[in-house]
């Protein structure tokens, strides 16, 4: 599975307006809906379950990255996107550090294995210092899109 299989490039946000965790989650889900990846009516229920999920245990994996995600009945297929915060957001991350890069992933409820596969792919790239650094430093959508395509072209393992 490739990053571009589940990252909606048109919904990427390079400069988040919201500065708090819940606001950031809402802004990203709204972007996905605005680009036709979700129904507008589904924004609120999905945001609510993302917040609920986040409260159960932070998806702030450390090193400035959070990967909020949820399996939701309203999701017909796996979809996600990337957002950047220049100021940093408090995600109650494992290392307590602010989060600058957020990769949000929404999956249907009945495909746990596919969800794990997408996460494995994502973290294979996220654990590379250079990938995280470039993501954090990208100031345009084009730069992030290039980064994703480049990552997809690197050999699987």
């Amino acid at each position: 599975m490739k990053l571009s299989d589940f990252i909606a490039e048109d919904s990427i946000l390079v400069d988040l307006t919201a500065t708090d965790r819940n606001g950031v989650l809402r802004e990203i889900v709204q972007s996905l809906a605005d680009h036709g990846h979700l129904n507008q009516d589904d924004v609120e229920p999905i945001v609510r379950s993302l917040i609920h999920r986040e409260n159960q245990g932070s998806t702030g994996f450390g090193k400035g990255v959070a990967v909020p995600h949820v399996k939701h009945e309203r999701c017909k297929g796996m979809v996600g996107t990337i957002a950047r915060s220049s100021r940093g957001v408090d995600f109650a991350a494992l290392d307590r550090a602010p989060v600058y890069t957020i990769v949000l992933l929404l999956s249907p409820q009945d495909e746990p294995d596919k969800h794990l596969e997408a996460m494995e792919n994502l973290f294979r790239h996220l654990q590379k210092d250079t990938f995280r650094k470039f993501l954090r430093q990208s100031t345009t959508v084009e730069e992030i899109v290039d980064l994703i395509r480049e990552a997809d072209e690197t050999p699987a393992r």
């Binding site: 994996f61 494995e120 654990q127």
Partner: peptide, 9 residues
């Protein structure tokens, strides 16, 4: 390391 653990898939 949570990031490495996610690689186990």
């Amino acid at each position: 390391s949570p990031m490495e653990m996610m690689l186990l898939e």
